[in-house]
Design a protein around this nucleic acid. Sequence first.
RNA 1: GCGAGAUUAGCUCAGCUGGUAGAGCGUCCGCAUGACAUGCGGAAGGUCACAGGUUCAAGCCCUGUAUCUCGCACCA
Length: 723
Amino acid sequence: MNEQKTTIPEVFLSPYNPAEHEEKLYKMWEESGFFNPDVCIEKGVTTPDAEIFSIVMPPPNANASLHAGHALFVTIEDIMIRYARMQGKRTVWFPGSDHAGFETQAVYERHLQKEGRSRFDMTGEELRSEIWDFVQTNKAIMENQVRSLGASCDWTRELFTLDERVIKIVHNTFKKLEEDELLYRGARIVNWCPKHQTSFSNLEVEHEDRNDKFYYFQYGPFVIGTARPETKFGDKYVVMHPNDERYKEYKHGQQIDLEWINGPITATVIKDEAGDPEIGTGVMTITPWHSGVDFAIAKRHDLDFEQIIDWRGKLLPIAGEFAGQDIKTAREQIVAKLKEKGLLVKIDENYQHSVPCCYRCGREIEPQIKDQWFVSMKPLAEKALHALDDKRFAFMTDRDERVFRHWLENIEDWPIARQIAWGIPIPAKICTQCEHGMVDLDDSIKTCTKCGGDVIQDPDTFDTWFSSGQWPLATTSYPNGDDFKTYYPTSVMETGKDIIFFWVARMIMLGLYRTGEMPFKTIYLHGMVRDKKGLKMSKSKGNVIAPSEIQEKYGTDALRMGLIVNNVPGADMNLDSDKVNAYKKFANKIWNIARFTLDSITDMSSDAVLNTSDNENIENNLRVQIVAITKDMDSNRFDLAAEKAYHFVWDYFASTLIEESKTLLASTDSNIKQSRQRLLSEYLISALKILHPFMPFITEAIWQEIPKEMKDADILMVAKWPK
RNA sequence: GCGAGAUUAGCUCAGCUGGUAGAGCGUCCGCAUGACAUGCGGAAGGUCACAGGUUCAAGCCCUGUAUCUCGCACCA
């Protein structure tokens, strides 16, 4: 120990203990007001005309604790924000939380189920009110977890997706879509989940590959094939390709009497190009109410529509003796009856197909016809494609751009209503007589504008993604807010690649639609966080890693480093606690570097002159590292920047510089000694700054122990990025 | 069916515009050395999936093959 002086603060005498510092430091940051750019301007940390850097946080669902994916996005975005702030940019990060309509309701329904209750025994109002309370509690927990991760977002600008401001924008968009004739209400095929009793967009439907039986039945003179005999009761149209030579004797519109499941029927021949001669026998019957393809054929030829299966998945009276049966149990019995009647030709036991399922419960989706609000997406998608062509925004990686483009070029209209209580109500009236729907923002419509009949409030709510798609508008207070004028378009949209269509594409389309401008300039999509073996985390596998547990065990800084190093933008990454532990050790290393450095410095004045070799060291070593790391930061390669910083600090600063300093500091030549002290001081200051975006807590904890004369700011968070 | 990505040390993965392979963990040997044993010094371990090609030079570029993963779409 150096006998001359003992300025070393006592905290350094024991290893770095994250739990001791993190909460206090976050409180200090939050109370300093520097998360808020207005305060930064007021206190001279940044200037009003400084370059703008803004991010809208993907609002976590207010229905559960944070998972590893949240920890990843908070880390990446906080790195961006802290880096920008240290560069003196006018920086803001808009936090928020999402009511997550269907998701939250589904979570809450499970709670109800545990209590032996069901939402179907409650009014929408009761359900809404209970979920509201549930969400308030979870929202607070979630926000504190975001804080614990070190997120330097501006809480004074926080927003919830059910706040008035959001609802107003969403309602106005709905109205504008109607005025621009981009909104229509019509009876179309929807993806209906018989369990959740709501419709979904195509994005919410998952396809499960299955091996099922495929049945061939005699249908008059034809043999038809189907995997779903239970839908066939109403089939009275037989479709084939117009050019199929095998069936040229049959004419379009020709009627044929034949025996079918429940007795004789009259079938009509339809020639349509949707009939693929290559599949099965080239002949099919159609069920327009329960199939999108069949629906389209029926529309083209103005055919009848009949519902066979009810909203709960049970057969309707058209099924005769099978009415009331659940379709899952009815199938075999129907086949048995057809066999009895001699109409079963054969069964292919090994038919491979993929079945649409509810992404949440896995139950088979039943296509149904339902009157729904749809948004015409093609005009909106074209605007987005033009913006992409004009390079008004860019993806970090080309592959994201290709995927995005492909989706937009093949976009389908968007059903935006959900039959659930938890969400933003659709401001519309529905006629009880003619089903006509009327947009009504101010509750002024009392009778049907079409038939004069009675109207009721539309009981549905918006698809969560319809409101989330307007999130950048809401957070910045479109259209008149100062934030909108200052921070829109935002600099970067950073979110998971799994929601590129759900969210990113919708924000782009709706943002362009409302403002004519892109909601953001750069899109950074991160991959999924998996467990240490690369498996998807799931409760059933028991491999879910809760960020809070990792934080407690290794510290938040270590978690952040574990999430960022080696994590290539867009690629999935594996979270391994051994890796996080390595960064816990690194945190302790930094701690001891600071201890050694501060202990070595006897003279705090910065006027010590660097000797030639130390000066060269700064120029050829420190500066070079800073430039390299800054370059990685500027290209959003935080994985590389973090790794460089790690090696620079450990392998050079600690292993080389400090080791050689031990002899130099003992020199009797005061110039050598003082020069060395100043060199170490510069290294420490720079290292802390470089590491701060990645490891904000420990770097700030050390910064707070550094004598004022040595530093350019009281709080590291607002110190200047080194050059 | 359309499209994308992956294949590098025992494990999990980096390697940015081509120049004799890197990290973490693990393994082996040694060590109290003005901070740190959450440490220090050292070592072993890779024909960079395979086959061709371009180049003075290829893990990196081109062609093909194999295996795996993911996304989208369709299904009578």
